[in-house]
C-alpha cells in the first residue's frame, strides 16, 4: 500500500513538473474566430484598395488611401493575435481602439460630407456595405483582449 502510494507520487511529480504553463495565446478559442474575421478583412481591404488604386486612383484618392490604411491596421491586429503575448495584446488593443475610432470618424465623415468620397471605403457609412462588421469587430476584439488578460493573470 505504501509502496503503491510512493509509486503514485513518483509518477505524479514529473508530470506536474512537465505540465506546460498555459501559454499566453490570443489566437485560440474565441480568439480563433477573431483571427478569421481579421484575416478576411485584411484580405478584403487590401485587395479592394490595391485593385482600385491600380484601376483608377484619381477617382477617389482619399477613399482608396483610407482603405489601404484600414488594411494595414487589420493586418497588424491579425498578426498580433496569432503571435500572442502581453506586448502583442497591448499593441492589438491600441490598434483595435484606432480601428474603432477610424470607423466612427470615417463613418460620420462619409455621412456629413459625401462629396469627399466619390467611391466607398471599407469604413464608409460605419461599414454598412460590410454588414456593419467593421464596427462590431473592434468592440469584440477589445472585449476579448481585455478578457484574455484577466484569464492569464
Amino acid at each position: 500500500m505504501t509502496s503503491g502510494e510512493t509509486d503514485v507520487s513518483d509518477t505524479d511529480r514529473p508530470e506536474v513538473a512537465a505540465d506546460p504553463k498555459p501559454a499566453f495565446e490570443l489566437g485560440t478559442g474565441p480568439g480563433r474566430v477573431l483571427v478569421w474575421f481579421y484575416g478576411v478583412f485584411t484580405v478584403a481591404a487590401a485587395s479592394r484598395s490595391i485593385v482600385q488604386m491600380i484601376v483608377d486612383f484619381d477617382r477617389a484618392p482619399l477613399a482608396y488611401v483610407l482603405s489601404a490604411v484600414a488594411a494595414v491596421v487589420y493586418g497588424f491586429i491579425t498578426y498580433s493575435l496569432v503571435r500572442g503575448g502581453e506586448k502583442a495584446r497591448r499593441a492589438a488593443l491600441v490598434c483595435c481602439a484606432a480601428e474603432l475610432l477610424g470607423v466612427l470618424v470615417v463613418g460620420a465623415w462619409t455621412l456629413a460630407e459625401p462629396t469627399a468620397f466619390p467611391d466607398a471605403t471599407v469604413w464608409s457609412d460605419f461599414g454598412m456595405g460590410y454588414l456593419f462588421i467593421p464596427v462590431i469587430l473592434p468592440v469584440t476584439g477589445m472585449l476579448w483582449l481585455r478578457r484574455a488578460k484577466t484569464v492569464t493573470i
Binding site: T28, P30, R32, W36
Partner: peptide, 14 residues
C-alpha cells in the same frame, strides 16, 4: 485549416 488546429467548439464557429 484554422479549425484543424482549433479542436474546440470555436473551430466549428470559425
Amino acid at each position: 485549416f484554422l479549425s484543424l488546429t482549433e479542436r474546440t467548439r470555436w473551430g466549428s464557429v470559425t
